[in-house]
Every structure is written in C-alpha cells, then in structure tokens.
C-alpha cells in the first residue's frame, strides 16, 4: 500500500514587478498551477504613471525548497523585472481590505456595531436591518473580525488579498 506524503510548509509573501503586458497575469498564475505551487492570495495593479509596470503581491505556502523554486521560476519569466520574498527579506507591512455584510436587529445589531468600533471597521452602507463594514488590516485581524461576525448575522465577505511592503526607508 502506498500513501501520499505531506511536507512541512511555510507561508511566504512575494512581490513581483512585471511588464504590464497582455497575458502576464495568466503567465504568473499559470506557472503556479503548472508546477503545482499554491496561491493563497494574489493582488495586482499597475504602479507607474504610464501603466508600463505592474506590481503583483502573491501569498503562497509550501516547503522551503519549493519557495526557493517559485522565486527562481518567477525570475526566469522574461517580463518579470524583480521578485522579492518579503518573508525572507522582512520585516514588512501587510494590509488587506475587506467588505463584510452583516444583517440583524436588536441586541445583535448593537453588538456588531460595537465590535466594529473596537476593530475600527467603518460602516459604508447601512439599512435598518444591515451593515456593510469596511475593514483594513493584516489578514489575521480580518479573520478575527469575520469570526466574531459569524454569530451576529454575517451574510457575505469580500477580501482583496494583501499588498505588502518592506519596512524602513529602502526599496526592497
């Protein structure tokens, strides 16, 4: 009998600067699927005035040797300018934005609003029976908030995935 073995895994945050050309996102996301790597979240937007360069933030997890391969494989792509493994280079700041819809009346509604205050989540839409909260922060903060809302009428969650940047005065 044979069973599939699992290896110990690490979470890494990578930022990738790329030429903003057609198909680049498919190329990068496809590299992850083709080689069996994981994507936990992926964000992308162009960051230059002439829209020529985009910055992609990918959160991945895998065994350390695989993380090194991901780095190398990404760097091998022609339109990729630079890959930075923030987890490796660290420390870094990571932020994610979430929209969280909660419905409820009475006690639960008051409690939801009170907890939102504690988390500095902002109501961006309100009806007499619902809120949409906007919350920015590190992923675990959003996780905690969402977990608390589950008992208070959570209906829907939308998250952007993180953007991240190295701390201090220098570019990574």
């Amino acid at each position: 009998m044979m069973h599939i073995k699992q290896e110990a895994e690490e979470r890494h945050v990578l930022t990738i600067t790329v030429d903003n050309e057609a198909g680049i996102l498919a190329k990068i996301a496809g590299l992850f699927t083709a080689r069996g790597y994981n994507i936990d979240s992926l964000t992308v937007a162009d960051i230059t005035e002439n829209h020529a360069v985009s910055r992609i933030t990918i959160v991945t997890h895998g065994p350390p040797s695989q993380i090194d391969q991901i780095h190398a494989q990404l760097e091998r792509l022609v339109p990729v300018h630079k890959v930075v493994d923030l987890t490796e280079v660290g420390p870094y700041v990571q932020r994610e934005l979430a929209l969280i819809k909660v419905t409820g009346v009475g006690e639960k509604r008051v409690e939801a609003l009170r907890i939102a205050g504690v988390f500095r989540a902002r109501p961006v839409d309100t009806t007499t029976g619902s809120f949409i909260f906007e919350l920015t922060g590190a992923p675990d903060k959003i996780d905690s908030f969402v977990a608390l809302m589950r008992d208070l009428g959570l209906v829907e969650v939308g998250r952007t995935g993180i953007v991240a940047m190295i701390r201090g005065q220098h570019e990574a």
Binding site: G23, G30, V78
Partner: peptide, 13 residues
C-alpha cells in the same frame, strides 16, 4: 498563446 505558455520560454501575440 495560452496553450504554448508553459512550453515556451516566451511568447507573443
């Protein structure tokens, strides 16, 4: 371009 993406070093449309 999609089909050849992962078996070319680079491709263009």
């Amino acid at each position: 371009v999609g089909i050849s993406r992962h078996c070319t070093k680079h491709n263009y449309l």
